[in-house]
Design a binder for these strands. Structure first.
Lengths: 140, 140
DNA sequence: TGTGATTTAATCGTGTGCGACCTAATTTAT
DNA sequence: ATAAATTAGGTCGCACACGATTAAATCACA
């Protein structure tokens, strides 16, 4: 299978495993998220807002690791779907503050079962899950 | 910080760590790949072709975990850059076979140093790297 | 041998990611 | 007080991902 350079062997590449694992997990989420009409990054953003409602785009971005060039269109879609509101703050007109709407708050209950369902789908034990989490923390 | 449902706490979510780690690694690769004019998914596809030249779109797709709706445009861009050729096979006109060009083969040498540079950049020890790899294999 | 099922790529539409840039609001340094 | 620098969010362009569909070639088999 592998040819010349063992350094370049795909099976050796951490990057490839990580890239695949991430997409695979996203795919596992999709059928569950489809039921509530969310995409995976939208779900991440909502997790952040459910923790703390009324955050600035900047704060959400820092937590999610996303910049405004990704967040602005995403938040506009959530706004169009009636899940969040976007408003300038009066004290500093540069800020846009994001609030959950009633529908956005209610969505939290609909998503409450997702983590447990995902754990089951993944086929991981709690120990394996914990191992993977702490291994990933090595990269921070 | 976290409000009501501990199940939905972002820090508890494996998905989020994975999603972040994957993007972070991609970002680490970018300056290195930019020097040779490749994107990260293009690099993955080339790793596959350097292992074995002359593969069908389907075979590359299976190895990379990508379908033609992602691969076809990506391969067309590589073709435009003179890195691969795309041809129908005479025995079965449904197949498109991908070959490395001379430039595509030469690119392997230019990329040979990338894994070592990445290991250094990541700040991981060999042991940590190995731990993370095997943890990720749990998801297969 | 003809025809319906299957296989393989390609196409289309939507939604990210992200570099580069822009604009307006605010802060700072003089 | 005000010009320069900084900050926040937005826009644009490109390249993925991926579900859904299409088109063409091949296969299976009655």
């Amino acid at each position: 299978m592998s040819k010349s350079n063992p350094q370049l062997n795909l099976d050796n590449q951490l990057c490839f495993k990580l890239y695949n694992a991430s997409r695979q997990v996203t795919r596992l989420y999709q059928p569950l998220l489809k039921e509530v009409g969310l995409t995976y990054p939208q779900y991440i953003v909502l997790l952040i807002l459910w923790e703390q409602d009324g955050q600035l785009v900047k704060e959400i971005g820092k937590r999610a690791g996303l910049n405004s060039n990704t967040l602005t269109p995403l938040l506009k879609r959530l706004e169009q779907h009636g899940i969040v509101s976007r408003n300038k703050t009066p004290d500093d007109e540069r800020h846009t503050i994001i609030h959950l709407t009633k529908a956005g708050k209610e969505l939290e209950q609909s998503c409450a079962c997702i983590p447990a369902q995902m754990l089951e789908k993944s086929g991981l034990s709690m120990e394996q899950m914990q191992l993977l989490k702490s291994a990933l923390d090595l990269l921070q």
